[in-house]
Design a protein around this nucleic acid. Structure first.
Length: 205
DNA sequence: GTATGGATGTTCT
DNA sequence: GAACATCCATACT
């Protein structure tokens, strides 16, 4: 399977608004290059975490953990949740303002075998759409851990955001998944009907 | 298909 | 010491 041609997104192309960025990233690609080869996937589900949003990790100001949210938009914010899974976010505002977009699910394009190997024995290799369906799985498929925190996804680095490789389908919206606060805000976005989107069925159509 | 409960480790109060 | 932007196995409809 040859790697598809994908152009890197430049920082200036990213919408300046967090919600706009969350929608914009649907249908775009996430690419990791390395000695083992390329892994890439279409982003199909995101969530926005805003300034003044109690569910945003930056809500109470910068700490050692969340400082990457305060970097210029297009930087990675990675953290461990429930002691189990890493979450990959894209910082979304200007320097000093803490907000971001969580990448919740992606449709694998290149390097499926490598993704499955990174996911380990629990990966459902018979169903490619399951490889990066869910934020923890997405980070797992790309081999993302805290050492990737703070990386510039718009620089000439090993992990980057790329343009769309196909037409983007209709985008749906819902409340965010798994929160105990700010549960009413409609800040989750997804490509309707895509099998790589996570969550219960009613939040995928 | 959905519902439930346990595992897990870091962070901040 | 509680909370936590999840995943997986199991049980059930």
């Amino acid at each position: 399977m040859p790697a598809r041609p994908v152009r890197r997104l430049r920082r200036a192309q990213l919408p300046a608004d967090t919600v706009a960025l969350a929608r914009y990233l649907i249908g775009k690609t996430l690419v990791r290059d390395g000695p083992e080869g390329r892994t890439s996937a279409r982003i199909v589900e995101t969530e926005a975490y805003l300034v003044g949003d109690a569910a945003c990790h930056a809500f109470r100001g910068p700490t050692p953990r969340n400082r990457s949210l305060f970097l210029a938009r297009g930087h990675a914010y990675v953290y461990l949740i429930y002691g189990v899974s890493f979450m990959l976010n894209v910082s979304s505002e200007t320097v000093g303002i803490g907000a971001g977009v969580l990448l919740r699910a992606a449709e694998p394009l290149d390097g499926l075998d490598l993704m499955a190997a990174r996911r380990g024995p629990t990966a459902d290799t018979a169903r490619p759409a399951e490889l990066a369906r869910g934020p923890g799985r997405l980070a797992g498929a790309f081999g993302i851990d805290r050492t990737w925190d703070g990386l510039d996804l718009c620089a000439d680095g090993p992990l980057w955001l790329g343009g769309a490789v196909a037409a983007t389908g209709p985008i749906g919206a819902s409340v965010r998944i798994g929160l105990t606060v700010e549960t009413e805000r409609v800040l989750r976005f997804y490509e309707r009907g895509n099998p790589a989107v996570s969550g219960p069925k009613r939040l995928r159509v």
